[in-house]
């Protein structure tokens, strides 16, 4: 447990998007998933630096796919979440849930 990393909000969003995409998580799909689910449009710079940072922390792994002609022969970099990443994001989400439990937010039907 001591090895579990503290995560920022955007890091959690990226990790959850990778989890949702499963085998097809690479730059373009991760960004689209974030846009579709959060109505936020992350800049490519923010996304790639976050992915690099998560990999340095050991929370995600990346591998290069085969080069494709649609991308001018450039390979996709696929991401997958590590066990440590899953534990970190689960812990962060549990913290949010504990904080929310029992709260009544004015103007919000279900907190």
């Amino acid at each position: 447990m001591a090895d579990v990393q503290t995560l920022g909000e955007f890091e959690q969003i990226v990790l959850l998007a990778i989890l949702r995409l499963d085998e097809n998580a690479y730059g373009v799909t991760i960004r689209e998933e974030i846009m579709a689910r959060t109505d936020r449009e992350p800049s490519p710079g923010a996304l790639y630096t976050t992915l690099d940072r998560l990999e340095e922390k050991g929370l995600v792994r990346s591998r290069f796919g085969d080069p494709t002609p649609q991308r001018g022969g450039r390979a996709k970099r696929f991401f997958s979440i590590s066990a440590k990443g899953i534990e970190s994001v689960a812990r962060a989400q549990r913290s949010y849930q504990r904080l929310m439990r029992g709260l009544k937010l004015p103007g919000v039907a279900h907190a």
């Binding site: 690479y26 730059g27 373009v28 490519p44 991308r71 001018g72 450039r74 390979a75 996709k76 970099r77």
Partner: peptide, 8 residues
């Protein structure tokens, strides 16, 4: 790979 993503 980043340029490939941006091309897509």
């Amino acid at each position: 790979s980043t340029v490939g993503d941006l091309m897509e």
